[in-house]
Design a protein around this nucleic acid. Structure first.
Length: 408
RNA sequence: GGGUAGGUACCGAAGCGGUUAAACGGGGCAGACUGUAAAUCUGCUGGGCUCCGCCCUACGGAGGUUCGAAUCCUUCCCUGCCCA
């Protein structure tokens, strides 16, 4: 029924940073094989931000590995904890989320997560189910199990504390709430990024205090964003969303610095280690050109999240529009609802949402970033006839075919 | 409860009665360059007006002093730190 311990551990170890404690996990797996009972693998999802990206996918893939081994993935939508917002890595208190908003984000989260996860062996839970029912007394009992000093061990808490940045009490409670999830769903293993290590360990502690066998924890690396410096995150705008359209997805992969290529092969693609080794050698001895390698990486990532047809198209688009600065084939149409057919270029750019304001439109025009039918426009007040559709280009990759709306 | 330091644009941070749409840095955008949407360099970076000038909005909130305030006064809100 279940693969052997070694087989399982090989897959589980792939890409993992830490497994704490590893021997306990081995024991759990042995027991699972013996009793033919799948392990319950927990992953908590923070529904504060609705867009999942390749960074989130790293740990989702690990969860998928467990599913493939026959274990149960317990995905927790933190609709309740979303009201607190995990302060991990943040130097600022998060904006609280309403339960409704959290639930809505949770739905879209699930939709995106199942791009990576399979629907079999998947249990989805919302933590408002148990956290929302706790009374103040329950909360006091829970918080009595941990000390302020223990909580302040957490790096970002202590940093904030020592540099005088406010920490609200509810933020301190977050790790305990997350730990309570582990108690509620009786997890055997909890997954998370390395930045989650503290929270995951608290879960162990709290489970033990509730007389349960503590969960093992497994941490995955934090994937760097396209800038190659910061972790991939929406707030740094260096992310590649799972639902990113093929052209953007490919382009964003192309924009990663060369040093990140191998890391993306490993953690965005989960390629075989032998293959990664081969690429590494090739890059080192010059038999593989980094650009071609990145093209391949981009195509494969697009193929993974879309399909290989889209991947080829995205590559062609990139070659054409970015490399050769040509006009793409498929440009969206926009029909201006205006009684006049001759309008100032700056007005056209604003009404078609190519620019957010006239000032901005003016700026870009004056800086030489605007072309109409491949002719550079340098006067923001120049009038353009749009009785027939014209192709507007703003910056490197914003295109729109604009025409006057026809009334019949 | 007492004391003290603060709250400035997307973020960090200067300014402390007029020359301030607000230095500087980051970010963002545009241009050049490039295998690249990387790196680097250059420029721009509140909004409106046919616009080389004018008009709005803006320095935690609300009032006030003044010809004139982000800068002074009053009051309220928020935050750090120290002492209880």
């Amino acid at each position: 029924m279940f693969p052997s311990v070694n087989e399982q551990m090989d897959l589980i170890r792939y890409g993992a940073v830490e497994i704490i404690p590893e021997d306990e996990l081995v024991k759990k797996i042995e027991k699972c094989i013996k009793t033919n009972t799948p392990l319950r693998i927990k992953l908590g999802a923070d529904p504060t931000r609705p867009d999942l990206h390749l960074g989130h996918a790293v740990v989702l893939h690990k969860l998928r590995h467990f599913q493939d081994l026959g274990h149960v993935a317990v995905l927790i939508i933190g609709d309740f904890t979303g009201m607190i917002g995990d302060p991990t890595g943040r130097s600022k208190t998060r904006e609280p989320l309403t339960l409704e908003k959290a639930a809505e984000n949770g739905r879209s989260y699930l939709e995106q997560a199942t791009i990576v996860l399979k629907k079999e062996n998947l249990e989805v839970r919302h933590n408002s189910e148990w956290l929302g029912r706790m009374t103040f007394r329950d909360v006091i009992e829970l918080s009595a199990k941990y000390t302020v000093a223990q909580l302040l061990e957490r790096d970002d808490f202590s940093k904030r504390y020592h540099s005088g940045i406010p920490i609200s009490v509810h933020e301190l409670l977050y790790p305990l709430a997350q730990a309570q999830d582990s108690v509620a769903i009786k997890s055997d293993v909890e997954l998370g990024g390395t930045d989650q290590k503290f929270n995951l360990l608290v879960g162990r502690e709290i489970q033990r205090m509730n007389g349960m066998e503590p969960q093992c924890i497994l941490t995955m690396p934090i994937l760097e964003g396209t800038d190659g410096v910061e972790k991939m995150s929406k707030s740094y705008d260096n992310y590649i969303a799972l639902t990113e359209d093929p052209n953007n997805m490919f382009g964003k992969v192309m924009s990663i610095p060369d040093e990140l290529i191998l890391r993306y092969y490993q953690y965005a693609l989960f390629s075989d280690l032998e293959e990664i080794q081969k690429i590494k050698l090739g890059l080192e001895n010059g038999t593989i050109h980094p650009r071609n390698c990145k093209v391949e990486l981009g195509k494969r990532i697009v193929a993974k999240y879309h399909n290989s047809d889209e991947a080829d198209k995205a590559f062609e688009y990139f070659e054409k529009v970015i490399k050769n600065k040509e006009i793409p084939d498929d440009i969206q149409d926009y029909f201006l609802d205006s009684p006049i057919t001759e309008l100032m270029i700056q007005d056209i750019l604003v009404s078609s949402n190519l620019c957010p304001s006239k000032k901005e439109a003016k700026r870009i025009i004056e800086q030489g970033g605007v072309y109409v039918d491949s002719v550079k426009i340098d006067d923001p007040f120049q009038k353009i006839h749009i009785s027939e559709p014209k192709i507007f280009k703003v910056g490197k990759r914003k295109f729109l075919r604009i025409a006057h709306k026809k009334y019949n």
